[in-house]
Amino acid sequence: MKLRRTLAGPLGAIILLVVLMSLAMIVAGTSPLDGFAALFQGALGGTSQIGETLVATSALLFPALGIALAFRGGLFNIGAEGQLLIGALFAGAVGAQLHLPGWLGMIVLLALGALGGGLWGAIAGWMKARFNANEIIATLMLNFVAAYLSLALVNGPLRGPLATGAETAWLDQRYWLPTLLPGSRLSIGILVALAFALVLYWVFTRTVFGYKLRAAGDAPEAARRAGIDIGRITWISLALSGAIAGVGGATIVTGELHRFNTQLSPGYGFIGIAVALVGDLQPLWICLAAFGFGILEAGGLAMQASAQVPKDAIHVIEGLIILVLAARRYVAARTETAAV
């Protein structure tokens, strides 16, 4: 009974996804059987394919975990994209100039990612706690600020000498995260992501902070009366949320791309919302959801390359699913608080 209820959402989303993707394939003139064969072959058909899927999984897992943390605290952080970008910018900008032993450099760069993303989240949190600014609007707008700020910096002072687009110089090879799966692009960044998932699971279920966070999210008035400082929880959770997304950005820089590019995320911070919601905001389920979406990302590209179905079709469909899931959750939250 209960299992059926928890599965109905994600399962419905998957079925919807399959139906819509089939339609997209038919429109593109490809048989869905061929399309899905190409998708799964491209996502799981070999070491390199699995590597690509896990690269996308890792890139989605960080922002999704950050988003889950904020959502559990009742904060609709839709600024993971900007937080990820700023985290990547910090890592890329400093990484291009760094003079440290390799392993220390890697840690420093990931920490810088956390700092950058955390700062970006904290700004929104501070605006909410201090001025009661709506966090949805604050985080959304900060995405644009992040995009234009990084573009201005990378077109200007941070631009790599040989860069032709908006890019920093390449990182010295000793700061590249080691490859996890030889013969693929997969770095140990995904292990960092999984470690974050485990820590977050522990934070949610065991710690006092996690308890306060969930109370603030599930029953703000009861939490306030229980002596929980909601303002503090607000900015801390948005800062942590941003920090996790920022580490994600830093792992993209140090793990795969090895330089900062303003276009390094094809919307991981937004798709991450869907990943978090499909994962029911539970860190361990989110890992599974991120893997599913990773298959779509990597397989989608392969599908485009072999079956001529534009990858964008998948993004459109993913967007629809985000919309449905987010609206459902938001409406549910609204009606619960309205029924006073």
Binding site: G51, V55, E167, R185, L257, N261, Q263, A298, A305
Partner: peptide, 22 residues
Amino acid sequence: IQVLQSRSAADYQPNLTALTNL
């Protein structure tokens, strides 16, 4: 023949790898 277009430099590695995988 098959062409993958890159919207940004961040697409180069995934695109090259996708064709490699095929």
